[in-house]
């Protein structure tokens, strides 16, 4: 095994251990507390919060992926070609909306709790995936798409057999960006009472307890890094399999 992989597995093991039995790590966070504050957040189980956090991110990401890839396919077909310039500029404009604003604006429509967070993450996650899917589907090697037409593939066979498989690594890079943003942004959801790890951080901000802020931030940050690494590895494997070079960060 490579040292990098060992380090990641150790970090993952530590993360899981901390989430399952946070009390046994109290000594790590004790120095951050003052005036006898608790070192570990116990109002809610860290495990439940983590599961809920990841569930929200997963649902939002799956939904954004389906819609974003679907739209990218639509605007790159002859039928939807008219929408291509518009969709590009919408993706560009959409990215200027701050997540907090999206979240806050979703509240009047959806009320407090998980729903506005899901919607905010879903909308915010659409953009990187859409942009990458568009890049992936519009920058295929011309000789390959030409050959696919030339051998007599139908539109559908070309899409499923050639275009999507070749665009997958680039789309995956978009999903990776989207997930990493969502994992961090989901914490803000706790300001509108969603059940995420942000709850721990906000409890820390309200009671001025650094230990809480640190443990919430640490769990979220480490999760984001691990997910980022895992998806990058998957991308590299796919790229190597298709003999392509990496084109997108």
């Amino acid at each position: 095994m490579k040292p990098g992989l060992i380090i990641r597995l150790v970090v993952l093991a530590l993360l899981v251990a901390f989430i399952v039995t946070p009390e046994s790590f109290a000594w790590v966070f004790q120095p951050l507390t003052k005036n006898g504050q608790p070192a570990i957040y116990v109002q809610n189980s860290l495990l439940n919060l983590t599961v809920s956090h990841l569930t929200i991110v997963a649902i939002a990401t799956i939904a954004s992926t389906l819609l974003a890839v679907g739209l990218a396919i639509l605007v790159t077909r002859p039928f939807g070609a008219e929408f291509l310039p518009l969709s590009r500029s919408l993706a560009n404009i959409g990215q200027t909306f701050p997540p907090v604003a999206v979240l806050a604006l979703a509240v009047p429509v959806l009320g407090f709790g998980t729903a506005p967070t899901l919607v905010a993450l879903f909308l915010y996650g659409l953009l990187p995936i859409f942009e990458n899917a568009l890049t992936g589907l519009t920058t295929l090697p011309p000789a390959v798409t030409e050959a696919a037409r030339g051998v007599g593939m139908t539109d559908r066979q070309r899409l499923l057999g050639v275009e999507l498989p070749l665009a997958t690594p680039v789309i995956l890079a978009g999903i990776r960006l989207s997930v990493v943003i969502s994992v961090a942004t989901a914490t803000i959801g706790s300001t509108v009472a969603a059940s995420t790890l942000g709850e721990v951080i906000i409890a820390g901000l309200l009671s001025n307890n650094l230990a809480f802020i640190a443990q919430g931030g640490l769990v979220v940050g480490v999760m984001a890094v691990l997910i980022y690494d895992a998806l990058s590895a998957l991308e590299r494997a796919l790229m190597a399999r298709t003999g392509q070079r990496r084109q997108h960060a």
């Binding site: 961090a184 914490t187 951080i201 820390g204 650094l210 931030g217």
Partner: peptide, 11 residues
């Protein structure tokens, strides 16, 4: 970049 903004602000 992966540290959630509210945590980094707090820390």
């Amino acid at each position: 970049q992966t540290i959630p903004s509210i945590a980094l602000f707090g820390l």
